[in-house]
Write a protein that binds this DNA or RNA. Sequence first.
DNA 1: AGCACGCCGACT
DNA 2: GTCGGCGTGCTC
Length: 622
Amino acid sequence: MRETKTYVAVAFNLPVEKFFWYILPSRFKRRLIKRGQRVVVPFGSRQILGFVVEESSRRPQGELKEVRDLFDRSSPFSETLFQLARWISDYYSCSLGQALHSIFPFSFPYKEEKPLFNPPSRDSLKREEVYLVKPGKNKFDFILSVIKDNKELQKQVIILVPEISLLATFQEKLERWKVKAGIFHSRLSPKQRYYCWLAMKKGEFDVAVGTRSLVFAPFPDIGSILIDEEESTDYKQKETPKYNVCQVAIKRGELENFPVYLVTNSPSLESWYRAKKKIYRTITFSNNEKEISSFKVVDLKKEKKENRIFSSILREEMKKALKRKLPVLLFVPRRGYANFLLCDDCGEVIRCPNCNTGLSFHIRGEMVCHLCGFREKAPKVCPFCGGRNLKKVGWGTQRVELETRRIFPEARVERFDFDTFKSSPHLIPSKIREEKIDILVGTQLLMKEEIISVSGVVAIILLDVLLNLPDFRATEHAFQLLNKISRSLNKNSSLIVQTYNPSHYVLSTKTCEDFYLKELEIRKTLRYPPFQRWIRFLLEGRVKSKVKDRSEEIAREIRKENIDFLGPSPCPFSRIKGKYRYHIILRDDGLSDLQQIIKRVNLGMMKGSVKVGVDVDPLFIV
DNA sequence: AGCACGCCGACT
DNA sequence: GTCGGCGTGCTC
């Protein structure tokens, strides 16, 4: 019998759409090659790993090289996880190889692992739904009930949290409930993560808790995915593929037929809107409709100038809390000592040579760029005019820390921000319990339920910074923060909000419903999400004119497609790390096939020295 | 993404 | 002359 040759298509973890075909030597043919399995192949001048995505007995065109070796003994991808990769690659516009790699990123050779039990066949008549769960104070009761229900059915539950520091509480609860649980996050070593992955594949756990990439857990029979604090922007992946975990979980639920629970008391406007339109079902616990008005607003316009960090009301409240031996939490929206250095003689600001934004002034006379991390010694005289009157403008955590120590010399003050890596946020509640801290000064990193709930006073030193960020979701995020703090507070504790704009609607709306309706109205008139879907092209390059030219070239290409878009325009941060940045934002009302358009536009545009990136449903437009 | 290849400036 | 800077384009 004549031997027929076999050919395989390989996809790489590279920003290259197409597959590459190789001859599969007959010595490998005895073993079945499954799609998703990795092979070692020659690629240009090197040898790399790639995922087998197709097989054929017909010879493809062109010169072909041979597969050098099989890396895995079997495919790590289930049928549905492979389909999920396909969907990610289509929806978020990345190569199939990149999508497969983000689902299975391990560099260990995989060999077949059989589950410890046979998963029952799926009940494919029933279509499962997405639920927006507003648990009030009953979050853990709800989660436990979901775990119990699934345990009875021999199904596994995935619990996702926005970031690592939130895992400790879950770990504690799961231990107390005596649940066989795996913990999965990026701080584990590659080996630890892979072992956890294998254990999940075998079905050794009933539950897994973890961050973003746990959404790809290889459990044999998933009963449901719970996403805690679904509104968190941490659920958006920053690297390609720039997926949103909630969307990926929902897609996976559709493919594997299980319900997804978005658990939060302050939903994202998008999710709230979908629940309102009955695309998601809503589960509300009875004590949830508490009003959000339980905070005191301080009008800084009416304060004496020297009281603009600590208003008289705040000082009083702090004294009261300290007397009751309850810790005070001061939220300062930016780190460093001062916001920037301004020359009083010529008006120039000291700027980052890579990013052109104002460098912030840190203690010990250091200038730091918060965009790229650039550091230099603060100048004694103005580098532009030689003037000696360099003024420190604005303030951050370090300045507030010093002021706090000055005004409350007896108190034990601690600062917590990106610069103080000494302690992690989950250690702070225990420090507070041991009565080691009186006043905590920190950034957003501190705004954790378990920290807020043990505080006597929480103060937002200047709300206006949050409201005026260059982001159309700024108000929504400020609302979610206020809502989260006031819900987490003990009933005898208080939230104080200092602002120059006390009549802002984020402060004056009385219920969540009112706020979301108001915000929705604004989004509608301005044609922002959720009324339109956005896709952003980000162009970066060292030569400004080239970036600009290319962005105009792409704009011309898009114009042919007859689709609405903004730009091209320089990004709000027009230069980062020495690279000029332009963007174009496609705005779609849901009728056109944007993904196809991106492909057509991208095809002709991949050439050249300007990097073009695509972000589908972007969260940050900076 | 790498890596090679190619075309310009400043050095022994 | 030639070493090496990075801009450009290809990888079955």
